[in-house]
Each structure stands twice: as structure tokens, then as C-alpha cells.
Simulated assay, not measured.
Amino acid sequence: MRYQVLGTTQATRPDGTPVPVGGARLRALLTLLALRAGRAVPSAVLVDEVWAGEPPADATGALQALVGRLRRTLGADAVTSAEGGYRLAADPDDVDLHRFDRLAADGLRALDGGDPAKAAHALDEALALWRGPALADLPDPGACAARWEARRLEVRRARLTAALALGEAAAALPDLTALCEAHPLDEPLQALRLRALAATGRPAEALAAYGDLRRHLADTLGTDPGPVLRAVHADLLRGDADPHGAGPHGAVTPPVPRSGAR
């Protein structure tokens, strides 16, 4: 069985046939178990998160009933009792979130190792797993979902870095522009856009964009551009904004959970 939590929670059989998982609480339970695929999740954690901090009077009985429904949906052996809780009988790679994290790590290593083509392949595979907001069926996705969304942004930034290194600045520019509009304070991302503009024969536009960024940072944060942006600006003034020197792919991304962590 395969499980998807990068979007609405879904389950599919090995042949690709979808398994309907009906009911918001049932999908929330499956999401929580999939996050720690192959590991026990304490009953108290499941109750607290499935019922969003407002458990029913008979929380133990309600959870047992919900687990029973999930077993009838997925198969009797899909969820086992373990160590004061329940465990999804699956390998981490059976869950799209953990598969994404593995492919992302492979791609980032390849990019750091100077192989943008290999990086692009792994990062494309990783990003293709996303179908919507992470952990969409949790009642309160909170900080956990935010960390995975930050990881996704890091991977998108890295993929665009690979594109510039491969001489694909023109193709990358529309995505870069849209991402920069959505994340105006992400300086490494903004630096990539400036380099892409220069690489597509628009250095004057890149210099104007740098000026806009400098004013925006001053007005919003009261700060000057950081070292990544300043380095790009210096290169632009010299006429040497090499897209291969695109800078760090994840300099402002916070730590993210490893497979199975929340």
C-alpha cells in the first residue's frame, strides 16, 4: 500500500487503485500514522491531534473504534497495536512525504557536489509528489506542515539553481518571478532571479530590480541587502553575473524533520 499526505490524505494499492478513506477523523488518523510510518504513535498523541485537543468522554473507546474503521478500510494488518499506541505497517518510502524527503536530500547533495543534471532529475521527482498543502487533513497542521512547506520551498529554489547552472535561465525565469513575488524577503531566491535576468540579456532590469529590493528591505525590515544579494549586485556592476555562481540553495531555510519526525 502507498500513502499520500502531501495534499489530501489518500491511500492506493500496489496496482495504483485508490482506496477510499472516508471521514475527516479517519483521514486525520491515517495522516498521523503515516507521518511515523513503521513506528508506534502513542494513543494519547493520536487522541489529542485527531480530536484537536477536545477528546470525547470515552477517548480510548473512540480511538479504538476509529482504528477498527481504518483496518476495515486498509486491511486488517495495515495498522497494528504497539507500545501503548498504534503503528502503520509500512516502510517510510511507502509514504510520499518521506519519499519526497529522500529524493530532496539526494538532489541537494548532487547540487552541492557540482552535478546539476543529476540534481534536477531527483528534485523534479521530489516536487512531483506534491498535490496540495502538506498534511491538509490534520485538524491543526500547524508548525509541522509549515516545516514541510519550507522544505518544499528549499527544493524549488534548488531546482531553479540547477536550471541556471544548466543554462536554462529563460525557462526558469517565469517560475522564479512568481516565487519571488510570493516570497519577497527570500534573499537567495531574489538573487537567483537577478542572475536569471542577467543571463537572459536583461542586466539593466536586474540592476533596477536590485534597487527595488534594497528599498523594500529597508522599508520592511530596516536592513540592507545581505551578502548574497550584495555579491550579485557587485557582479552585475562588473557585467559578470554568472548563473553558475547562483549561491546557496537553502541559506534561509529552517531545519526540517527527518523521515518519520513531526
Rank of each mutant, 00 (worst) to 15 (best):
L111E: 00
R202P: 04
L236T: 06
V67D: 03
S259C: 00
G16E: 13
Y3A: 07
A231T: 12
A163L: 03
A251V: 05
P174M: 12
V41W: 03
H216L: 15
V19K: 08
A204W: 07
V228Y: 01
L236W: 04
A136P: 07
T9C: 12
A204C: 10
E181T: 13
D115K: 00
D112R: 00
G16V: 11
D106C: 01
A246E: 02
A204Y: 07
A89I: 05
R152K: 14
L197F: 10
R2I: 12
A24V: 14
R147K: 13
A208H: 04
V155A: 12
A90N: 04
S43H: 10
R2E: 13
A206Q: 07
G107F: 00
V19L: 14
R71A: 04
M1V: 15
A171T: 13
A76P: 02
R2Y: 14
A178D: 11
G7K: 12
P18N: 08
A251F: 04
R71S: 04
L66C: 09
D91R: 13
H121K: 15
T8M: 13
L189N: 01
P255Y: 06
D140P: 07
R258N: 08
R39A: 15
L160A: 11
H216P: 11
L153D: 09
R156L: 11
L29F: 08
A198D: 13
R36F: 08
G85N: 01
Q4G: 09
